[in-house]
Every structure is written in C-alpha cells, then in structure tokens.
Design a binder for these strands. Structure first.
Length: 488
RNA sequence: GGCGCCAUCGUCUAGAGGCCCAGGACGCCGCCCUUUCAAGGCGGAGAUCGCGGGUUCGAAUCCCGCUGGCGCUACCA
C-alpha cells in the first residue's frame, strides 16, 4: 500500500508557520515512503473564507519546496480537491447515516442552543446539546417552530449514550474516551455545508489517504471521528496528533510573539532551506547531535516514531543562526544571485540598474559570513554601489578622535597622500601603506583604520577594510577621504 | 465546571532500567584569532530529569498519586 498524506488547510488567512510545519511532516512522510502528498482546501466555513488565501497557501508551499502531487492547481485522479465542490458527497454520507439511524435532523434554532448552554453554564453543567430532537416528539415540536421561523435543520450524529471509544494514535499511543462526555455533534450545517468531522473523513476515504497528521488540539474531537468512521464503515487511517508550536511564553504562537506567517520570514530574509530545516526539528529529531539536515536526509530519515509528544516553543534565535549557516554554505553562484535580488530591492534608486553582477560576485565572499538575514545585505555593502557616502562627524571621530578632530583631519589628509602613492591598488598594498602611515605617525593602527573605514564606507561596521577599498577603487576612496576631511 | 494532552539546561532536543552525578544545538559568559563586525577555534556557567510515593540490586527511563502548563468544550477548523 502506498502512503498518501494530505495537507488540508482552511483558506482563512495567511499561511502560519505552525500550520506549515504540519504540511512539512505530511510531505516528509509521503516522500520517505515514496508515496503521494496531496493538498486539499477545506473551505466549508463560509464565514471565515478568504478567497485570496488559496493562492497564498500554494505560494508558501512552493517557496518552502513542499511540492505536492495532487490538489490545488494540479488536480489529480480524486478531485475536486476543494471541499465546497464536493457537497454532494457529504450530503450522500449524511443521508446514509440518517437512513441507518446513526444521525438525525435537528431543528433547534441557534438561539435555543445558546439558551440551553447558558442555562447549563448557570448550573455549572458541561455545555452540551440537550438532544431535544433525538426523539420523535422533541423533533416534531422543534420542527414546527423552525418552519414557523423559516430556518433549516442540521444533521447531528446520534452518539451512543454509554461506553467508550478508543483510537491508537501514532504518536500518543492508545487514547480512550468516555462516550458520556460526547454530545450529539453536528455533521451537516443548515447551509448544506459539512462540518470538519464529516467532510475530512469522506474526503480522506475518497482520496485514499492513509495517514492523517494534524495538531494535537484535535485530540479531544478524535473520538467523534472514530464514531463517524465506524458508522460510515470507513477504515481508520493512521492518525498522528503532532505537538503544537508555542510562543516564548508558552501560549499559542501568535502575532504578538513576532512573525507567524511564512511570508514574513521570507520578507525578513530567511532562506526556505533554513526554515525547512528549522521547522523539521520542531517536534522531530534525527539523533542526539545533528541539527543541520539536508532535504534529502530529512526524507531519508523521517518517520513518525521520532516525533515527540510535547509542545515546542518557536526559538527564533536558533532559526536565525541556522539561516546564517545556510547562507555560508550556499554555492557561490546562488549566493550571488540571491544577494543581487536583495540588493536590487534594498539599494536606493539612485544606484543604476541592472546591478553589476560581477561586482556582487566580488563582494559576496566578504559579506556572506557576516550576514544572518538576507535583509541585512544592503546595510553591509551599499557603499560599494554608491558614488559618495555621507558619514556623520561623530562616526568619523569615534572614541579615538572625539576630542581631537584636528588630528583626525590631519590623519585623513595624510592617508589620502599615502594612498595616492600606492602602486598597484590591491588590498595588500593598501594595507602596507596604511600600516606604514600608522607606524610613522604614532597612531594606533586600529584608530587610523576605523577613521578610514568610516570615511570610505560611511559606516562603522563593514566588511574587511582593505579588500573593500580595493573593490571601491582608488578614485572613489580618495574622493571619499577628501570629503570626510572637509567635514571635520 | 467537564473532558483531555503534556512535563529532561532559558529554548529545541538525545535518552526506550545500569553506557547518564544526563549528551548535542541555539542563546549567554570568557579567552584566542583580529583593522570594525562577523565567522572560526578553545573553554565555561546552565537540568536535584515538575513534586511525592512505590517496583527493582539499580529509574530520567516502569507503576500510582499530586502539581503545573496547555488544549477542547460552536451550525470554526
């Protein structure tokens, strides 16, 4: 039997990293066993439906490199892969349950349901449907009211009153629930749309899904699902409830903790490879020491039995570190391409486009090991691209010259002279000249260098100075040195 | 209120009775390298394995109880 997993998001907003981690595990499990990874849209909640988010889901999956085999824009043999287009199947399943006596029509109004719950709350009873429509008399009465008010019925599952239900979770092991705590839940809403518990089971069967992965907030409703599987005569797939991803305070990861959307991470300059690796390590591990893991390795090694039960806090610092690792390990050509993209976005419009790739190619080696986020690239190398820089006097003087600007000005002038005299404009020659100047003028080398650094780059923190100067070129360096001297 | 899930350094985790007075990684702190910042190297602090009982010659690992955190309790997923 081939393994078929599915990622079944609700199109209600932007793709959340917690959600996408489930997709990642679905993907890995399917690939590990050489099976199929399917994406199905669960748009049965018409209130929360956001049409544009379907495209966002596809985009985030593609960006992360979670290529699917069926669904979304790909179609496939078991389509449609959108629940709103499968309504007849749910209706048919509901009718079957109705005919079998496993379900019944409930005519109670939303208002009555609310009143019942309020009353139960008042009495400190667990809020639950009171099963008024479960028997003929109650149903008939409710129906008269409903028809007077003009509202349609829902279909409810007729939950057995006593006994237990169990399921064997692939991660949590056996889970058992008391039927007396489960009420008669809704299967089909009055608008004709199914509720999750009916829709996913019908679809998973139709689509031959073998493994269901979802967040463990679903555990409490799992027994209902077992009831539906049985009533429908559907074989229960492997069910795995994944540990959730939390914010630093232990609560559900949300906006107030920082970025939650996959796109926000992309915007901040995280690499898909890094996010893939990081997310793959939330709730799963390869062994006791490996944390940089290639996609191939993930696929080769991923199994459900190494998924942990406990929830995990999303540790952005580690993601950021990991992103730096991936940037450092990126092949040269791809690095240049990536840096060029980010520079194109980040550099002021005064810099001529298209950007000089050869130049980026010379800069990249100097910058790659200092960058943790791609969004930082521009800040490290804008001065290579600009005609002039505009350092502040304070930055120029730093601590060393704070009280003696005249000395700084003199040093800048002497540096200008020394650099004009340099033979070949290479970083070695530049360094020799500047060191000689430092030694003969009695300045600390570091003080002189940082003065020159700010003058040439406009910044206090930069890639290595001499290599940078070599790339910036003699003309521009000397011009910037003069401009800086004039500033003091 | 009811039901449920979870519980090893701040964080992610390794650990499936002796290899563990608990290993790795991020972060943090030192030192080295060094023209800034990184990267890199070396070292360090950091977990009475939530608590209390058992079982066992021996428990982070098995059992029971407790506590804490979190979740569910919708015609949302």
């Amino acid at each position: 039997m081939t393994v078929r997993t599915r990622y079944a998001p609700s199109p209600t907003g932007v793709p959340h990293v917690g959600n996408i981690r489930t997709a990642l595990f679905d993907y890995l499990l399917a690939r590990h066993f050489g099976g199929q990874f399917i994406v199905r849209i669960e748009d049965t909640d018409r209130q929360r439906y956001v049409p544009e988010s379907v495209a966002g889901i596809a985009e985030s999956l593609r960006w992360l490199g979670l290529e699917w085999d069926e669904g979304l824009d790909k179609g496939g043999p078991y389509g449609p892969y959108v629940q709103s287009e499968r309504l007849t199947a749910y209706r048919a399943a509901a009718d079957r349950l109705l005919a079998q006596g496993d379900a019944y029509a409930c005519w109670c109004s939303a208002q009555r349901l609310e009143e019942v719950r309020a009353e139960q709350a008042r009495r400190k009873q667990p809020p639950r449907y009171d099963r008024r429509c479960r028997d003929a008399a109650g149903s008939a009465a409710a129906r008269r009211e409903a028809e007077a008010e003009g509202h349609s019925p829902v279909v409810r599952f007729k939950t057995p009153l006593e006994g237990t239900v169990s399921l064997d979770d692939a991660i949590h092991g056996p889970l058992t629930f008391d039927l007396s705590t489960i009420d008669d839940f809704v299967l089909l809403k009055s608008d004709g749309f199914p509720v999750y518990a009916l829709a996913y089971i019908v679809d998973d069967e139709a689509m031959r899904i073998t493994h269901v992965l979802r967040g463990d907030e679903w555990i409490p409703s799992a027994p209902r699902h077992v009831l539906v599987y049985r009533a429908l005569g559907v074989e229960i797939p492997v069910i795995a409830h994944l540990p959730r991803i939390l914010g630093p305070d232990g609560a559900k990861l949300s906006k107030r903790h920082g970025a939650t959307s996959v796109f926000e991470y992309r915007e901040q300059g995280y690499l898909p490879d890094a996010l893939f690796n990081f997310l793959g390590l939330i709730g799963w591990s390869l062994d006791d020491k490996t944390d940089i893991i290639s996609r191939e390795q993930f696929i080769e090694r991923f199994t459900l039995d190494r998924v942990v039960k406990s929830p995990a806090v999303f540790n952005v610092d580690k993601l950021t570190w990991m992103n730096g690792v991936y940037i450092r390990e990126m092949p040269e050509a791809r690095l240049v391409e990536t840096f060029t993209e980010w520079l194109d976005r980040g550099l002021p419009s005064s810099v001529a486009r298209p950007l000089d790739r050869a130049l980026v190619g010379r800069i990249a080696p100097l910058v790659r090991e200092r960058v943790k986020l791609l969004s930082e690239v521009t800040g490290y190398c804008d001065f290579f691209f600009m005609d002039a820089v505009s350092p502040s006097a304070d930055d120029l003087l730093g601590n060393a010259f704070a009280s003696k600007p005249a000395d700084a000005k003199a040093a800048l002038e002497r540096a200008t002279d020394a650099l004009e005299a340099v033979g070949a404009w290479t970083h070695d020659e530049i360094e020799v000249a500047l060191r000689a100047l430092g030694a003969q003028s009695g300045m600390k080398a570091g003080d002189l260098f940082s003065l020159v650094r700010v003058a040439v780059t406009g910044r206090r923190v930069t890639p290595p100075l001499f290599e940078s100067m070599e790339i910036v070129g003699r003309e521009r360096c000397i011009g910037r040195l003069r401009a800086a001297a004039a500033l003091l």
